[in-house]
């Protein structure tokens, strides 16, 4: 079942910082650029120190859902959340609540951008930093 899979960062030391995953994530929508990317790569204090990959880690008990005042974030089977954009008022509490900083923002829509663990980015990671794994939950 697709919904019980989750995206995992296998080893950030393999990451070369090419951002292919970020662009792949945005391509799920009919557009280019990075506005709707739910995954983020940044250096750990400069390129010389390597990279960190920031993405939803599919918490079984997600703090972002707990602080959502409108019930727009519903815990997902297998961890993480599903966003109901119709309910979302764009308050940004979820973004504050995520300790990993893995909730990004779509400034055009004024709504959060959160990984849905579809694994589209995995196919565009040339160095196997990312993988989709079955959850035991």
């Amino acid at each position: 079942m697709a919904s019980t899979k989750r995206l995992v960062v296998v080893d950030p030391d393999l990451c070369v910082g090419c951002m292919s995953c970020m662009f792949a994530c945005a391509r799920r929508f009919p557009e280019g650029g990075l506005a709707k990317s739910a995954i983020h790569v940044r250096s750990v204090g400069g390129f010389e120190r390597g990279f960190t990959v920031v993405v939803c880690r599919a918490c079984p008990d997600p703090p972002c859902a707990k602080v959502c005042p409108t019930g727009a974030l519903v815990p997902r089977k297998g961890g993480g959340v599903i966003l109901n954009p119709n309910k979302c008022i764009g308050c940004g509490f979820c973004r504050e609540a995520c300790p990993f900083g893995a909730i990004f923002w779509d400034y055009d829509e004024n709504k959060p951008v959160i990984c849905v663990h579809c694994g589209y980015c995995v196919d565009y990671c040339p160095h196997s930093v990312l993988a989709l794994e079955e959850t035991k939950r």
Partner: peptide, 8 residues
């Protein structure tokens, strides 16, 4: 820097 969409 920044982030935005590019229409296609």
């Amino acid at each position: 820097g920044g982030k935005r969409k590019i229409p296609v």
